[in-house]
Design a protein around this nucleic acid. Structure first.
Lengths: 203, 203
DNA sequence: GTCTATAGCCAGATAGAC
DNA sequence: GTCTATCTGGCTATAGAC
């Protein structure tokens, strides 16, 4: 039992290393440009060994998505733990976290059109459950922040939720980072401001 | 001379049909998922004939980008012609146009990571010149709108420009459209509002 | 479960006849 | 310039030895 547990631990560490590589490569190159050979080389094992752990390239991407969603849920729970924070402040903090993850090159980017990938994702109960969980948690905050008068009530919560989700793949961060003129902190605050405050002047 | 001109016209019409197909397929499936075979089938010619007109798949994408940029420039000039419009109103109108094009499935979507594609694009003088032209025209309006007090002065014009450009590939439009609950007009106005007004409540 | 080697496939690009 | 037929390379996935 102790031996088995140890073996399982080794397995988990190995698979965690694989998912880390996949996560970074997906952020760097995107799903289509990432090759399984690269992943194997990056992890330092043979390609065939990869396929003993994950059934397909799509399954690799799904595992990376599951992990980033788990991290997102942790960020959400960290905000829930701050008793004095308002719903709006919590949403802002989680959105900032999302931008930071993307800017750090740790946000996997998947093509929304690829049907094979979509099929693998929606067949993955862990992934679907996590997406639902994150959506519900954020959805509650959105409704609350609207009631507080902190978020606009002129937009349906659904639109606000999607807009926040979309910050995870906002290309503006990459544009500004590529310019090399500004610090990561500045870039994050600017994009956060475009999202929450908008571009039009405020009185 | 008349004969030659006629032949050139036929050629242009044919190439225009190719670019139309490429444009639509790029919007539908993205660059990586689009195949040259599909393009040929869609146009109704053999694949080899395509390669007589365009040197590579990347060149096809570049041609589609050139055309959409030309259309954007037309939209910009249409706004310039409205003497009584403010810079802010012009920016809003052009941004709305961008959202409408994307929602209509006519906005080609290219992966920003693909280096071969990037190389082809920046080697294409027509493409680069058009990007510069559009950027400068919008940049002037942005500075003017900031002076007018209509756009926030807390963000550098560069950040505002990138944010407006990014609306061309905003996934929120697709999410809302996929839901099937709302009219295209509603979706466009909502996303335009998230962009200009932001998510935070306005007094 | 790890490796080497390879099967199988698909897509970009081209040859060569007309 | 258009076609059919084909080449070529790269990528996912697997066979089979250890």
């Amino acid at each position: 039992m102790a031996r088995l547990s140890f073996r399982e631990q080794v397995l988990r560490v190995r698979e965690d290393a694989i998912v880390s590589s996949v996560n970074r490569l997906l952020a760097e190159k995107g799903f289509d440009s990432m090759t399984v050979d690269e992943v194997a080389a990056d992890v330092g094992i043979a390609k065939a060994s990869l396929y003993k752990h994950f059934a397909s390239k799509e399954a690799l991407a799904a595992a990376a998505m599951v992990r980033v969603l788990q991290r997102a849920l942790q960020a959400i729970e960290a905000q829930s733990a701050i008793a004095e924070a308002s719903a709006f402040e919590r949403l802002r903090a989680v959105t900032r976290w999302t931008l930071q993850v993307q800017l750090a090159g740790e946000m996997p980017s998947l093509p929304s059109q690829n049907s094979t990938l979509r099929a693998t994702l929606i067949a993955d109960k862990t992934y679907v459950d996590l997406v639902m969980e994150v959506s519900e948690r954020l959805g509650e905050w959105i409704v609350q922040a609207q009631q507080d008068g902190a978020l606009t009530s002129r937009l349906p919560p659904e639109v606000i939720l999607y807009t926040l989700f979309a910050r995870a793949c906002d290309p503006v961060l990459g544009f500004l980072k590529a310019g090399g003129q500004h610090s990561d902190e500045k870039i994050v605050e600017w994009v956060l401001s475009t999202c929450l405050d908008g571009l039009a002047a405020r009185p």
